[in-house]
Amino acid sequence: MAKQAVSFTLNGKTVDVLVEPRELLIHTLRENLNQTGAHIGCETSHCGVCTVDIDGESVKSCTLLTVQTAGSDVKSVEGMATADGLHVIQQAFVDEHGLQCGFCTPGMLMRAYRFLQENPDPNDEEIRWGMSGNLCRCTGYQNIINAVRTAAKNLQQA
């Protein structure tokens, strides 16, 4: 199948890729653009380890065609930290021991990043609901909830 040229913004920089229409965004990010932060866990849109942020919404990049992202603003975990250091949410994950094997972490962080903009002051139940598209096999979620709560507090103080 003929490849198509697609441009979008990734973490603030314009990228141009040449892809088959059927190519999934997760593969473009990982194989083509060498951004391997987002992972592949289920491929059926259940686990959320492939979560990135597109035009202000959390999206599972295993269930999106790269051609669909033409002109979009895509953010991935690689764009979270800045020259000034870690993002408040990243630091909270370290402080609250919100990760173990780290495989779910990029997706978790990207979802938390968006969730805390949707709901800056969530209670635990809201965190559970708002993060429910991301699975973790290691932590039992409890410390991730603590991390999101801590991040919310620190973001509000910042």
């Binding site: 987002a38 992972h39 690689e78 979270m80 930290a81 870690l86 021991h97 780290g102």
Partner: peptide
């Protein structure tokens, strides 16, 4: 944890 720095920045190095 010492290992967290790479995982939270998407710099883990998994087989795939």
């Amino acid at each position: 944890r010492k290992e967290d720095a790479r995982f939270i920045q998407g710099k883990g190095n998994y087989t795939d």
